[in-house]
Write a protein that binds this DNA or RNA. Structure first.
Lengths: 225, 225
DNA sequence: CCCGCTCTTTACGGGCTCTTTACACGGCTC
DNA sequence: GAGCCGTGTAAAGAGCCCGTAAAGAGCGGG
């Protein structure tokens, strides 16, 4: 946690020097880039825990760069900017920026906002491979194995299972499941759930009559363990 | 998602009025409190998706209140303050504040920061754990453990327990419990409480005849410790 | 055009949960 | 000490939710 890695994308040498020293002495591992191009490259090759991005880069609009980064980078991005206009701030935040800090900034505050953003990061880490007993669910590959063998699931079955897997241990209400898998408007069709939960249990459980993974919470919903 | 609920804790009537109108017209469901005490009560009984907290409350330091809320409330807490001192900002952020906004604020920016915080909420799958002795109640997962083992509760049993847990140490009247769990119109059915409190004690207490968690306050109601 | 796969829809039986009732127990008041 | 009120405890009935199978509908490929 104390050895978080940061990437600073800023073209002003003075800022780079200042941040390099300040952040370094706080125990962060700091990478520095002075152009958008360089920044994307570094972020891709050694994904940092947090990106400090200057909106006013020479080669490209920071807003564009932010959008591109958000396409695949889901950790914290803090915007640094001399621009104090409300329109810029709103735009950046709505494009997925974690925070927006105007220059000149106060060092202590910047550090506190960085700590806050990193702390928040740590919680929301999603795995793409979920293992539960003899079950393996690979969200990236959209593949499911049971006791080492691939299991053939239909599209809807998989969607439902993936939703369960991403929320392991948590009770998901009928409403929520129906909304997520079938969309709004199907939230009262609880019989769909009965049918598809049955199908999943047949394919995934040792004894479908005594499920160990997809547990029913009567009157509320289901829980995946 | 568009119907997120917010709680505003601020003692200035002018601010309350402004925020009430602004946030309401954005489609948020807004609760308002003007003292720390009132704020805690509201947050406990109807946990909102985000809390807007003024640091300068009349009855209590906002920093203290922030710490207490963070003890069990895991969603976003945005600080509003006339204080622009770096020490205050750093202190609040390090105590778990999601963001810190100084008054006077710009409405558009405030809204963007609220949206950002709520969006982040949805991703960060934090769980709000309430621990009391060997009991663990996970409000987000709707799961209850006793001495490390999961306890199976029915829907109504859980609703009742969750209400107790969110109001730890406080005496809850029969009227209040019945209204919250069964709805208005059941406020005289005290026998329901007897039956369900019995069921909870059987499942949660070491010795159901000598309860340590769900205490009865004769003539008034029950208290969870 | 037919076949097969998947999703939708229907039906019914069983089990679980909630409700309701009955009674025992203890403390308080008269 | 008797009676009453508030609470604890057990148990049975009713209703609803869930599990399960199976047929119909929609779709795409051969």
């Amino acid at each position: 946690m104390s050895k978080a890695s940061l990437l600073v994308i800023d073209d002003e040498p003075a800022i780079q020097r200042l941040l390099g020293i300040t952040l370094g002495s706080e125990g962060f591992h700091v990478q520095q880039a002075s152009t958008a191009k360089e920044g994307v490259l570094m972020a891709a090759n050694h994904p940092p825990d947090l990106i400090l991005l200057d909106i006013g880069l020479p080669d490209r609009s920071g807003h564009d760069l932010l959008k591109e980064l958000r396409g695949w980078y889901n950790k914290a991005i803090l915007i640094l900017s001399v621009q104090d206009s409300e329109a810029d701030i709103v735009r950046a935040l709505d494009n997925g920026a974690t925070d927006y800090i105007t220059k000149p900034f106060r060092t202590g505050e910047l550090l506190a906002r960085i700590r806050s953003a990193i702390r928040r990061n740590a919680v929301g880490t999603e795995r793409s491979l979920i293992v539960s007993g003899e079950l393996e669910i690979d969200l990236a590959a959209r593949a499911v194995k049971r006791a080492g063998a691939f299991v053939k699931l239909t599209a809807t079955e998989y969607d439902l299972l993936a939703l369960f897997a991403r929320n392991e241990g948590r009770v998901l209400t009928h409403h929520f499941l129906l909304k997520e898998v079938w969309g709004v408007g199907y939230q009262e069709q609880t019989q769909y759930l009965r049918v598809f939960v049955r199908a999943l249990r047949k394919k995934l459980e040792e004894d479908p009559e005594r499920p160990l993974h997809i547990m029913t919470e009567s009157g509320v919903g289901y829980r995946f363990v």
